[in-house]
């Protein structure tokens, strides 16, 4: 039984890593808290659902469409964010909160409040390893998060562009002094973030019911993981995601499913209470 909980915790954690990556990247490079993150994720899920259900597209082919939708919205968002005055972090919260309300209501208008799920039967099938239960869905989440992280790692640490991005994350002004086009890095971060959201959204729709107001929970998860990991640390993001996933699946088993929603909130509050400066702390790992 414990291995099952462990496996489901890790796969949930891998999923949370996917959810959080876009948020973490956008926050790291531009210092904008994008509270509309969860809504964008759900919107990506809806676009994929729409293609899959109405036009009977194969699920895998819906990803490019979801990415495109989110990319367009994120580029628009970036224009809005770049007009913000100081204090940027606080104003970005208020602005993106407005965007979240806007997207949520647009989705309510377009897709109604019904619960929708992208049902892929294969994902629920059991992968046969004697002794423990693991489904194809869990394996997919685990490996897709590792693969996406791997690609991101290569991008950030092996290319010149990644170096510029990391420099912007570390110190915006110094990066600008060194000749890096910080504004372009911001746009780029929004683009990569949009791709990550476009990849995570359809997966979200496979394992979680889609309805317009569910994005809030995903936003909270993304905030928790980002602050837990600290800025610009890919390795600690996966650790943070796994810890959150494990904490949630143990909570479900020990206390009941309805307490799960409190885990990320408590974790975030504890982090903020003991590391009041949040990200300035070194984080874990």
């Amino acid at each position: 039984m414990w291995t099952t909980i462990f496996v489901s915790g890790i796969s949930l954690g891998s999923f949370y890593v996917l959810v959080a990556l876009g948020f973490a990247l956008i926050f790291g490079v531009t210092r904008n808290f994008n509270l509309a993150h969860g809504e964008l994720l759900v919107l990506a899920g809806y676009s994929s659902y729409w293609l899959w259900k109405v036009w009977a597209f194969p699920f895998v082919l819906t990803f490019p469409f979801a990415i495109l939708v989110i990319l367009l919205i994120c580029l628009g968002l970036q224009r809005l964010f770049s007009r913000l005055r100081d204090p940027i972090e606080l104003n970005s919260i208020v602005l993106s909160f407005g965007v979240a309300v806007l997207i949520q209501n647009s989705m309510l208008f377009c897709f109604s409040g019904d619960y929708r799920l992208i049902r892929i039967p294969m994902l629920n099938q059991r992968f046969h390893i004697p002794g423990f239960y693991i489904s194809y869905g869990q394996l997919t989440l685990f490996f897709s998060s590792l693969i996406i992280l791997g690609i991101l790692y290569v991008l950030m640490y092996q290319t010149y562009l990644g170096k510029a991005l990391r420099a912007t994350i570390q110190d915006k002004d110094a990066a600008a002094l060194a000749g890096i086009n910080v504004a372009a890095m911001g746009t780029l971060a929004f683009c990569i973030g949009a791709v990550l959201i476009g990849l995570a959204g359809p997966l979200y729709g496979c394992i979680h019911y889609l309805y317009p107001s569910t994005g809030n929970e995903a936003t909270l998860v993304a905030i928790t993981i980002t602050i837990f990991a600290g800025v610009g640390r890919l390795g600690s993001i996966i650790l943070a995601g796994w810890i959150l996933g494990l904490a949630e699946s143990f909570t479900v088993v020990l206390c009941g499913a309805s307490w799960r929603e409190m885990v990320s909130a408590v974790l975030l509050l504890t982090l903020l209470a003991f590391r009041p400066h949040g990200i300035l702390g070194k984080g874990e790992g």
């Binding site: 509270l35 909270l220 905030i223 990320s264 408590v266 975030l268 903020l272």
Partner: peptide
């Protein structure tokens, strides 16, 4: 910003 995020999480409790 961190106060705002903490209050956002606090409602869940």
């Amino acid at each position: 910003a961190y106060f705002a995020l903490a209050t956002l999480a606090f409602v869940e409790i």
